[in-house]
Amino acid sequence: MDSRIRVFTGHFGSGKTEISINYALKLSKQGKKVAIADLDIVNPYFCTRDEAKMLKENGIRVIATSKDLANAELGVIPSETVSVFNDKSYDVVLDVGGDDQGAVALGQYNRYFKEEDYDMYFVINTTRPFTNNIEGIIEYIKDIEAASRLKVKYLINNTNLSYETDINHIVKGQKIIKEVSNITNIPIRYVTVMEDLVDKLPDSIEGEILPLKLFMIPPWRRFDA
């Protein structure tokens, strides 16, 4: 059974925020009481906090830096974050900043993770230059585990080339991630795919398919003519 607390980590730019938002929406649709916490202290742009309004409209509690501090050069984590560990009525999504630097933000909650089980996901996109091979991915998993003092429980194949993604990218990524999975004994839990490509994925692919709707898009694609 899934743990109440889901932690999304990965290499910077691997797609944690898109997955966190989509995952929170998915939990909410299942009728759960959901909280999403933006722990990204690395990225200045394209963050969960930018989608706070939409998430709230979907009945999701958003814990993120207040608007007046959202553009500070040093990331801020609201003190309210701790409440998701205490209030066990919530299903929780933690969107963590990239790399080991981002994962440091988790360290302060270590005593809560010792008291309660958690699912930590490691998001992988093999079209990203530093995670395009087995060694690179494993190096990042180790760095993030060390910085967060937590263990990765599941892998997510989020291989994509933004608006140029085709099925071959995902299948190629799956092959590399499968080998990582064999070496580390960490199972592939999800394979993400844009909603319109879901039907084209091979049936045999390991992991549950997580269809994605994108939110982190630049203004000219938001208002495409």
Binding site: R128, L161, S162
Partner: peptide, 15 residues
Amino acid sequence: ADKVLMKGNEAIGEA
């Protein structure tokens, strides 16, 4: 070469 997905800032470095 295969295309890669990069942030503008990273792409500057690699270029």
